[in-house]
């Protein structure tokens, strides 16, 4: 069983978001970088659990990005995984990124992604990779089990959940429920230093979108406080002023 786990570098969840160069670039100063939480907590940890059950399982990590991604992918290797691949390209276009992953993913039985990244929130990489591989895509998984070469997956649908059975190869996007967050131990951190991190050059693919600029949400006018003994006034404001009820 060969598993490919997609890893993305994202700003820490507590980061203050700011932009520079006329709002065309993300301001990286002072930002802590982490593994995208959905990639780390759910898809990577689940892959590690599968390897713990079956030692013959091979886990490779893949990221698409510049050399600035290396510390984050080493952090991922400290949790587990046998080796990492970094496709040396920088893009915000999901078709371009997914094409890079698909070019490598064809060698694998199972591709895991997080349900979305917490920076671009597209939730589309897994679907594009699957289409390019002509493989099934199970989105928003909440539970993942392997039964030989068949995956049994619970996934979120409109207004509920369903259970899917699918023969591998397949692409699965993982969210809460698939696994529990782990903390890397010292042995893992030491081992990660010597695990292979292969840098490969991107395949030639066109980009289909480009970011023009960013905007921050408009500043709030400020909170209107209502005394706790005058709840009726809050209801009046919500009804007459905000027209929300």
């Amino acid at each position: 069983m060969k598993i490919l786990v997609c890893i993305s570098k994202t700003p820490d969840t507590t980061s203050k978001i700011a932009f520079k160069d006329g709002n065309t670039k993300f301001e990286e100063a002072g930002v802590q970088w982490i593994i995208n939480p959905y990639d780390e907590w759910y898809s990577l940890v689940r892959a590690i659990e599968l390897k713990e059950k079956d030692a013959a399982t091979v886990i490779h990590l893949i990221t698409v990005g510049g050399a600035d991604c290396d510390p984050v992918i080493r952090k991922a290797l400290a949790l587990g995984g046998d080796e990492a691949i970094r496709v040396n390209a920088d893009s915000s276009d999901s078709f371009y990124i997914a094409s890079q992953i698909a070019a490598i993913a064809k060698e694998y039985d199972l591709v895991f992604t997080g349900k979305e990244t917490i920076d671009y929130n597209g939730s589309s990489i897994g679907a594009i990779v699957a289409e390019l591989m002509d493989a099934p895509y199970i989105s928003l998984a909440t539970k993942f089990e392997l039964n030989g070469t068949t995956a049994v997956v619970n996934r979120e649908i409109e207004g509920g959940e369903e259970v899917n059975e699918v023969a591998l190869p397949a692409v699965v996007s993982c969210q809460k429920g698939v696994a529990e967050q782990r903390i890397p131990n010292m042995r893992g951190i030491m081992a990660a230093r010597t695990k292979p991190l292969k840098v490969v050059e991107p395949v030639t693919v066109e980009t289909l979108t480009s970011i023009v600029n960013f905007e921050l949400p408009p500043a709030k006018a400020g909170v209107k406080l209502v005394p706790a003994d005058n709840v009726a006034e809050l209801v009046r404001l919500l009804h007459e002023e905000a027209k929300a009820i």
């Binding site: 939730s123 679907a127 699957a130 895509y137 928003l140």
Partner: peptide, 24 residues
Amino acid sequence: SHNQTGKAIAGRVSARLKAGLVAG
């Protein structure tokens, strides 16, 4: 729509049509 169903299919349609996707 960028609902659960949309998240499962929009990327696939994008790849089939080589059409750029703005998700969300």
